[in-house]
Write a protein that binds this DNA or RNA. Structure first.
Lengths: 100, 100
DNA sequence: TCAGTATATTATAATTTTATAATATATCAA
DNA sequence: TTGATATATTATAAAATTATAATATACTGA
């Protein structure tokens, strides 16, 4: 139960990562990805965001090391790479979406 | 270990809340508040943000029901009201700042 | 009352994000 | 090869956020 105050640098890193989740469709994309790999067009469908927006978002997340992409025939499958992202989404689910 | 996919509405609510944490100084303010109530000027000092910025941020968070304010003599003490915010900050600490 | 400190509000310029359109590339199937 | 589908890139307009300055309000103590 210690009150752990983060450093300024930690706040910068974590808040930078949180920006990716602070948008309804992008959060949905990440939640969908915690259930397993998905193609760009599947994520487009599941999130309601445009092709371009989804592709741009995934590209950015890949550059940040949060997701991985693998081409398989004509599809590109994305999946979560950084385990902290998965943990974070799970925490969000527990805190905000739990059915008590 | 169920893969709980949120609704679009849940994503809107949660991502809206996450916007408050997706900024280094605002995240710092919320982390400081998890350790107990603080005045505006204390938070100004602790976060490095300007008086106006801190006040605006706290006002917005209060309007959203995330924090509470109580005036005590000439100072206004802010504290976290929504227990989910506290839980979220604790999760962030565990996931991103844990010393293993 | 007045001066000083704490906080809030308002306005606005500067910056960043977001959405969108257009186009490019890659792969497949015929 | 050609046409169709999947994904990526680029450019840019629109919208939202952020930082800042200026000012206002609230309280205190002398």
């Amino acid at each position: 139960m210690s009150k752990n105050i983060p450093t300024q640098e930690q706040c910068e890193v974590v808040s930078g990562l949180l920006k990716n989740l602070a948008h309804p469709q992008r959060l949905m994309i990440l939640c969908q990805l915690t259930a397993g790999p998905k193609t760009v067009s599947e994520l487009e469908e599941l999130s309601g965001a445009s092709q371009s927006a989804v592709s741009q978002f995934l590209g950015r997340m890949k550059a940040e090391g949060l997701v991985d992409a693998t081409r398989e025939t004509q599809y590109v499958y994305y999946e979560i790479k950084d385990p902290r992202v998965k943990k974070l989404i799970q925490s969000l689910d527990r805190i905000f979406c739990a059915n008590p």
